[in-house]
Design a protein around this nucleic acid. Structure first.
Length: 450
RNA sequence: GGCCCUAUCGUCUAGCGGCUAGGACGCGACCCUCUCACGGUCGAAACCCGGGUUCGAUUCCCGGUAGGGUCACCA
């Protein structure tokens, strides 16, 4: 544990640009900044980088802000870069006045026939070494950068310039961002030096990779946080998963709540290499998190994914036992839906077709008695008054099943109710199907045996 | 291509000179069991290659290879 006893409070920030939906990579960067700040009771800020007016939209901004709220990444303050044009312009004038930057007339890059005035930084061309909290010292020769452009005009700053000015004005002490920004760092430091601003602590996080180890992109699977939420993943599971991508607590603990992550987090545990986004592990984590929820919540979560499939919806909403079966079987609502759509639970939707052979348990030495047993089951079920539940049905059949051999009784019954060789047990089926339908299916099976 | 970063089971990772290289996901087997799932037990599975340094390298250094990032009047 490193006790941070420095007097200056930590300020971190995440700076998404609203040019696309809230991306899991952005979410992870936000998460790490949040964790780092909260760990030492510092401030976590959000800055919407909307200086690219052509590509930024209000919708994307809302998606990002909503997404962060959903994940529990509550920020202490939020600013839009577009609202800070005055500060940017002032700093820009300052640099030009000091001749540390200059206005240059040159042909426009987009339209060479037009002449524009851009602002370029006078690059001293020195070697810059900065310390990265996860990678150590990194050195760049900034000579190759030349007098790079820092603004389209005196009133229209570019990314690097705005970042430096804003971070300084916001009092950002720690810049924690993706590895793709490493090569941006030297030019930002150059601007800092020209402006006489302090250098924040830098920490560059490894990238999140697709299965093929290339940059995670939309084509290689869902990248939007909202997509995962729509599939039925819990925000807490997503947060937990993202935290484990490129970080570990140093212990064997893997299931964390956001609060637990705050206390466990440290930059020491941050990995250097990129991490593959493994949906299978996300699913497992989602199940772990979902299992911690009250039954009611888990039920509603799952039910919301089977709307429109009446039989399944009814069975699962009427029978707790059937729902419990689902809860241990599937990790997410999407997974459930896929199974339902492929007919895994067709027995909840309609009466199955059964044949004599299906009704005989493979180990039954007396296959000819299948019909007889089913008839006896029906008889025993008559003794139940009230609705069938797993308990009443089990109680009614227990003695007979024991004496006759469980498989000889439960297999034909389960098969009569489900028509499948893989399904929930017959008690769950009886409860979910209801008294009337259960009896009807058993009788139909008896007919099939004769 | 230049510059920069990275490299332990299939995947996420522990390891910070001496370990039977540990855990998790996934996978396989067995147990539980009427089936499936759950649960339990066990198992297969990794130090990219080559040089150094050292009594000793997964670990430190150099080179190679591979992968990634970045080279805008986007962010």
């Amino acid at each position: 544990m490193n006790r941070d006893t420095t007097a200056t409070p930590v300020v971190t920030r995440v700076a998404p640009s609203p040019t696309g939906p809230f991306h899991v990579g952005t979410a992870r960067t936000a998460l790490f900044n949040y964790l780092y700040a909260k760990r030492v009771r510092g401030r976590f800020l959000v800055r919407i980088e909307d200086t690219d007016k052509a590509r930024s939209t209000k919708e994307f901004e809302e998606d990002i802000l909503d997404g962060m709220r959903l994940l529990g990444l509550v920020c202490d303050d939020m600013v839009r870069q577009s609202e800070r044009v005055e500060q940017h312009a002032e700093r820009l004038r300052e640099l030009v006045a000091q001749d540390k930057a200059y206005v240059s007339r040159e042909p426009s890059k987009s339209d060479p026939s037009v002449e524009v005035e851009v602002v370029r930084l006078r690059n001293p061309g020195t070697t810059i070494t900065f310390h990265d909290e996860v990678r150590g010292d990194i050195t760049f020769d900034t000579g190759e950068l030349g007098d790079f452009v820092i603004a389209r005009s005196l009133r229209d700053p570019l990314y690097h310039f705005a970042v430096v000015v804003d971070d300084a004005d916001m009092g950002v002490t720690h810049v924690i961002r993706g590895e793709d920004h490493i090569s941006n760092t030297p030019r930002q430091i150059l601007i800092q030096q020209a402006l006489g601003l302090p250098r924040p602590v830098y920490a560059h996080l490894p990238l999140i990779l697709a299965q093929d180890r290339s940059k995670l992109s939309k084509r290689k699977g869902a990248t939007a946080v909202a997509d995962y939420i729509a599939k039925g993943y819990l925000p807490s599971a997503l947060v937990n998963f993202l935290a484990l991508l490129g970080w570990n607590s140093g212990s064997d603990k893997e299931v964390f709540t956001l609060d637990e992550l705050v206390t466990a987090f440290s930059l020491d545990g941050v990995q250097k290499g990129g991490a593959v986004f493994d949906v299978v592990k996300l699913q497992w984590l989602n199940k772990q998190h979902r299992l911690m929820l009250p039954f009611e919540e888990q039920r509603n979560l799952m039910l919301s994914h089977v709307h429109g499939v009446e039989g399944v919806y009814d069975a699962l909403s009427n029978s707790e036992a059937a729902m419990h079966d689902i809860l241990e079987r599937y990790a997410t609502g999407e997974e459930l839906r896929t199974a339902v759509d492929s007919g895994e639970f067709s027995f909840y939707e309609r009466r199955p077709e059964v044949t004599r052979e299906m009704l005989v348990w493979k180990k039954d030495p007396t296959p000819e008695r299948a019909g007889e047993r089913l008839a006896h089951i029906v008889e025993l079920l008559q003794t139940i008054d009230g609705d069938f539940t797993t308990d009443t049905v089990r109680e009614a059949l227990n003695e007979y099943a024991e004496s006759e051999g469980k498989g000889n009784v439960l297999w034909p019954m389960r098969m009569a109710l489900s028509g499948k060789d893989r399904s929930p047990d017959p008690f769950v089926l009886a409860e979910a199907l209801g008294t009337i339908e259960t009896k009807a299916r058993l009788k139909a099976a008896i007919v099939a045996c004769s």
